[in-house]
Design a protein around this nucleic acid. Sequence first.
DNA 1: GTTGCGTTTATTTTT
DNA 2: TAAACGCAAC
Length: 685
Amino acid sequence: MDLSKLNPPQREAVIHGGGPLLVLAGAGSGKTRVITYRIAYLLRGGIPPHGIAALTFTNKAAEEMRERVGKLVGDRKTAAKLTVGTFHSLGLQIIRREYKALGIPSGFTIYDAADQLGTVRELLRTVHVTDRRFDVKAILTRISLAKNRFVRPGEYRPAEVDEYDEITAEIYPRYQEALRAYAALDFDDLITETVRLFEENAEVRERWQRRFRHVLVDEYQDTNRAQLMLVKHLCGDHGNLCVVGDDDQSIYSWRGADPANILSFERVFPGAKVVKLEQNYRSTPTILNAANAVIANNENRHGKTLWSNRPDGDLLAHVVATDSEHEAKFVTREIGQLTRGGRWSYRDTAILYRSNVQSRILEEELRTACIPYVMYGGQQFFERKEVKDLIAYLRLALNSRDEIALRRIINYPARGIGATTLERISARAQAETTTMWNVLERIDEAMSKQIRPGTRQAIGAFVALMQKVRQGLEAGQSGAAVARVLVEDIELYADLHSAAGSHSAAQRRIDNIESLFSSLERQHERSPGLSALAQYLRQLSLVNDGDDTPDPGDKIVLTTLHGAKGLEFPVVFMVGMEEELLPHARTLAPQVTDVFDPDHASDVSEERRLAYVGMTRAQDKLYLTRSALRRIRGRTTERTPSRFLLEVPKHFTVQRDATAEAHELVPTDELSALFKSIAAQLSDD
DNA sequence: GTTGCGTTTATTTTT
DNA sequence: TAAACGCAAC
């Protein structure tokens, strides 16, 4: 480790002795470098790796951090002993060891968004809300926000005239009861239940406080109240807490992140040292000053001014198009010219937008121009549905109380057990205060009158199938082996083929299942046994996209502004710089489903931060594009330039007219690209 | 239990 | 515009 590679404030943060430390790290100022160096420095100072916890929000950030620390200390074994992970994985780790004190069964399940949605839908049905259809997600958002502020189920009080608060007040207690009955924890519970455990059980709390002698938190501006509490408890009285973040990049308050955490750090942790990292190593001064000018319009900041000692660089391009097609064509054409110049390749370029719908027209134009691209984010959820279905079988085998898993698979593939049957079984289970699985097991004696013999036979077959799965696991077979037999038994591949539109779509799904098998095999070799499998399945639900991140290759990146946080590109296009897109219309005129929160009423400052995050992704070239007309929801509307665009001082930009440039002569190699794309389209059919 | 049609409603997303 | 959802008909 070479401390001379750090600038003075970076070094100051790294060698800070003990006690609370707030590192205000501007965009591109080397915050990950500070955290990794600090961990290495603590290790060198004699703190055992076992006693250090570094917390992040995403698995990706955690992996990157562990890797960089490993390189820095040059000792893989030491790096492996560190606790580097997401808040949720730390919560899971603690709960897994302390489940007894929490009164949860050891085979507990983790509920993801889909499971939560299913639970609330089910509850809405039992509460008989038929007069009005509710947005289930809006209810879950409220439950989640309440949980993270430690509002107990019975304490939830509706606002004066908010029907969503009223239905939430009704659903929230039932939801929490349901989860306990299913032996399930949702993502929020991983944090809040850990906090509750620490608050109610001094012995447990002190044990963990003794263990972690230093705690480090990345992206501190994204923490919510529950995460703050968790951190506070972990640090206990030593207060060796180092947080790194940027209040100007807080863009997740809509999902509960509380910027007050970073703004009032010094009040919450008295005697805190504050270090500002203001030297930016990423962008040209022109880009940086433009971004600074925009963010300066926000109030309530810690206030930093980023500077860069690079050469000034190009002016920003303020591009005006007559319609969104011209805008997309401009971007495409410009990318063609930049890459043809030889200085930049596709992978150096990103197109950023506020909302996913904006990607469509860009994709169309990029495709016709034969420019390769990758889209970050988006909805990959249903692509892995088949994997989740299969996992639900294992989940149910390990936790028969998991009603959502049961409901998910009892008629998948279709075996003639429909909604009415399920309703009756559910009602019986409720009446007997037992689980649905318990009723299923004795269906013939319990419900011979209410359920037809044919259906009961189907249920019997399902129960037998599940018992076979469970017995296989109990006999010590691997999850993979059991799942393979199961897939044969239920003829899943045949079902996938008939359900999928094309052969290749079915094959993709089958490939997904096959990779689940090999993943399960590997885990069985690592640690066989029922509880290890249960733990593996829980861990799996905390990992979003499996284990393989494919090499992006030389492609343009398309992503939302949110998705761009933490990334950097030599060339950045921010498209749709218009009012009602950025800032988004929803911010300017909130809807009934939006949470009314007087503490941080949805204001444009978060949208401005979003603009700031986008601009500060750019290293060398930044294009801000907008259109005079745009088709929105089938209606062509006149557009107003984004206020943030107008906040960029004129002397940092050069205006360009996309439509006029589109009529200029098309260079010959661009024509050849056009021919290529036509040929490609013809051969596609 | 599935399919199809009309109605409705349009952010951001990780764990 | 377009996709997601609910309800009614098969």
